[in-house]
Amino acid sequence: MEAIKKNPKIRIGQSEVQAVRSMTERLSDLDDDFGGRYARPMAAAFLINTVTPYLNAESSSETLDSMLSAAAFLCYLTGWMAVDEGAHGRAQQYYVKALELAGAGGDHNTYCHVLRGMSVQAANLGHGSPAARLANAAAEAAPESTPRMRAFMAGQQAHSYALANEKANALNSLREAERAVNQAESRPGTFGGFSSATLAYATAEVRYALGDVKGSVASLRDHFPLRDSTDSKRSEIKFSALLAQRQLEIGYLEAACETWGFVLDAHPNIHSGRIDELVAKIAPLLRPYRSNAMARDIYDRSREVA
């Protein structure tokens, strides 16, 4: 890395490509464990200080394509971190650059990952039709036909269709994701994994978007026992916060308070704008229930945290 800074035209090979891929995996682990606000500055610094000089270095055409691919996935991951921060405009800039790099390197797999990530962002912001268009584009661009990749794409299509009020398409995509998960034999990878736990969460989101709040709570409760070591701490906190909101929505006050208690215990260890937003909603939601001792305790704790 020091040599590259002194001489950007130094020749690089596959060892530098592997270094970028390994660093991307480590940054992904930091993002999962501590949140996007913690990890994104490190990812951005690595992009600027190391990966950009690598892209300008001399190399074979094969090495350049590999480096473009590695840089594209790192840009995608950095955009994913920016979404977690709540910096949606910045995330879109990273995503667009990731598409450019993946296209230049001929990496169709990363290209469709980025499109799916853009669909997830749109869905989280409540934009159902754009989310569906992006999810469909991602599925059409996907070069792999493995069961797990089909599930990865179909699960996002199902959620997007549900948000766009396309119930039949949503349920069809959800069934496709379920069939694909049942056919999958390999373990989920670091990136692009879709497991039985993920399917339960996707089912919860589809049900909620279609107005079945009670069914969504049941699916979220199914999700947690299915989690394994590939699932991030951040997603556990996020999904727990969503579960608590929906438990309250169907009248399960004390169950919601118990779930929120876990969220508040875990919150100090995560640096996530998305989770901060979910925690900020606790006090307004519990304000009408302060006559209940358990609700009052969670209300007070959430105000202190916020």
Rank of each mutant, 00 (worst) to 15 (best):
T110M: 13
T110Y: 12
Y111F: 13
Y111D: 06
Y111K: 03
C112G: 09
C112M: 15
C112W: 14
H113N: 09
H113P: 06
V114P: 03
V114C: 04
L115I: 03
L115S: 02
R116P: 03
G117E: 01
G117T: 06
M118D: 05
S119Y: 08
S119Q: 11
S119M: 08
V120R: 11
Q121H: 14
A122H: 10
A123D: 11
N124P: 06
L125A: 10
L125G: 05
L125M: 11
L125D: 04
L125Y: 10
G126A: 08
H127E: 15
H127L: 14
H127D: 14
H127G: 11
G128Q: 06
G128W: 00
S129Y: 13
S129H: 12
P130M: 00
P130S: 05
A131C: 02
A131P: 02
L134Q: 09
L134R: 11
A135Y: 12
A135W: 13
A137I: 00
A137M: 09
A138D: 06
A139K: 05
A139T: 03
E140G: 01
E140N: 07
E140S: 10
E140H: 11
A141V: 01
A141F: 02
A142P: 06
A142L: 08
P143L: 08
S145G: 12
P147I: 06
R148W: 15
M149P: 01
A151G: 13
A151W: 14
A151I: 05
A151D: 06
M153Q: 00
M153K: 03
M153W: 05
A154P: 00
A154K: 03
A154D: 02
G155H: 05
G155L: 02
G155M: 01
G155K: 02
Q156S: 05
Q157C: 07
Q157S: 03
Q157V: 07
Q157P: 01
Q157L: 05
S160F: 00
Y161W: 13
Y161R: 04
Y161T: 04
Y161E: 09
L163M: 04
L163K: 04
L163T: 05
A164S: 09
N165W: 03
E166F: 00
E166T: 06
E166L: 10
K167M: 11
A168W: 13
A168H: 13
N169M: 12
A170G: 00
L171S: 08
S173L: 01
L174T: 01
R175Y: 15
R175L: 15
E176W: 07
E176Q: 13
E176T: 10
A177N: 07
A177L: 09
E178G: 06
E178D: 10
R179P: 01
A180L: 09
V181G: 10
V181S: 10
